[in-house]
């Protein structure tokens, strides 16, 4: 790294990494592996799980029972990650995930959170005015569908298993995975045909 471009936070990061290895907390290789896993995680991982759940009822049941095990089954690295809970949308009830305290997010299966997930506005409105919040994402929740907001405050991370959209009958899991977006697994949007 060029010293001309080095910022105080770069120096702080280098110092923390040096301390972690000097004190035997982690090795350089372990830090590099964790960075690689974190950077590789993206909503495409969660989308593969959702698509498989839509096409494989036995997998769906396993995913609802233990999200982390179901992720590992899809070769998503979960070692050292918090437990993953999966919230099942039904025709009667839709789920929306927020972390009002900070920014708890299922990074292993969704990657880095979108910028708005950590905003004070999203966090405040998701619990108090969730229907109004959904409208701003262009999501109109039918009046008869109950809205269940899950505030992620502790040791679990949560993702939504959305409803499979009509018009996708006969699609392969890969085709289905391609239409599942980040917001569909947070609950701010519904999967829709491209």
């Amino acid at each position: 790294m060029s010293t001309l471009l080095e910022t105080p936070s770069d120096r702080l990061l280098a110092a923390v990494r040096q301390l972690l290895t000097a004190k035997g907390v982690m090795t350089h290789d372990e830090i590099a592996e964790r960075i690689r896993i974190t950077d590789a995680a993206s909503p495409a991982q969660g989308a593969r799980m959702v698509a498989r759940a839509w096409t494989d009822p036995a997998y769906r049941a396993r995913m609802l029972a233990d999200g982390a095990k179901a992720a590992e089954e899809m070769d998503i690295p979960m070692r050292g990650m918090p437990p993953l809970g999966v919230l099942e949308d039904t025709a009667e009830q839709h789920n929306l995930v927020v972390c009002t305290l900070c920014s708890c997010y299922p990074r292993a299966v969704l990657g880095y959170p979108p910028f708005w997930f950590k905003s004070a506005a999203y966090r405040a409105r998701a619990v108090r005015d969730p229907r109004g919040l959904l409208l701003e994402f262009g999501t109109v929740l039918p009046a008869e569908v109950k809205l269940r907001v899950v505030d992620s405050t502790a040791d679990y991370r949560w993702m939504v298993l959305p409803l499979r959209p009509a018009g996708t009958e006969g699609w392969s899991a890969a085709q289905l995975a391609a239409i599942v977006r980040e917001g569909d697994m947070i609950g701010t949007t519904f999967p829709r045909l491209p």
């Binding site: 929306l96 619990v127 108090r128 005015d129 969730p130 229907r131 109004g132 109950k146 809205l147 269940r148 907001v149 899950v150 505030d151 992620s152 405050t153 502790a154 040791d155 679990y156």
Partner: peptide, 11 residues
């Protein structure tokens, strides 16, 4: 003025 039907929190 709450808008949701249920709020579920880890405690």
């Amino acid at each position: 003025d709450a808008g949701g039907d249920a709020l579920v929190v880890e405690l």
